[in-house]
């Protein structure tokens, strides 16, 4: 299974499924990361975490640990 954590900087990926549960998953979905959406992996923070994504036309930052919940293609 490939997750968002494995994505490369500058890569555009499509979300297949969200794993995990509870508030964090809900929050990720509320921010627009849902099944089928495309995400551009913009950059990684200077200290290596979190990552910056472009999703649904805006910039979102996400910790790598949480990015693991997002299965991509």
């Amino acid at each position: 299974m490939r997750t968002l954590r494995d994505g490369q900087i500058g890569e555009t990926v499509t979300v297949v499924k969200l794993h995990g549960r509870g508030p964090i998953k809900r929050r990720i979905m509320d921010m627009g990361i849902t099944k089928g959406v495309t995400i551009l992996i913009r950059k990684v923070a200077p200290l290596g975490d979190p990552v910056e994504l472009n999703v649904r036309g805006y910039e979102l930052s996400l910790r790598k640990a949480d990015a693991e919940m997002i299965e991509i293609q």
């Binding site: 508030p23 964090i24 929050r27 990720i28 805006y58 910039e59 979102l60 930052s61 949480d66």
Partner: peptide, 11 residues
């Protein structure tokens, strides 16, 4: 009450 760090970076 885990604090999700899913944060918008506004323009």
């Amino acid at each position: 009450d885990p604090a999700p760090f899913v944060m918008e970076l506004p323009s």
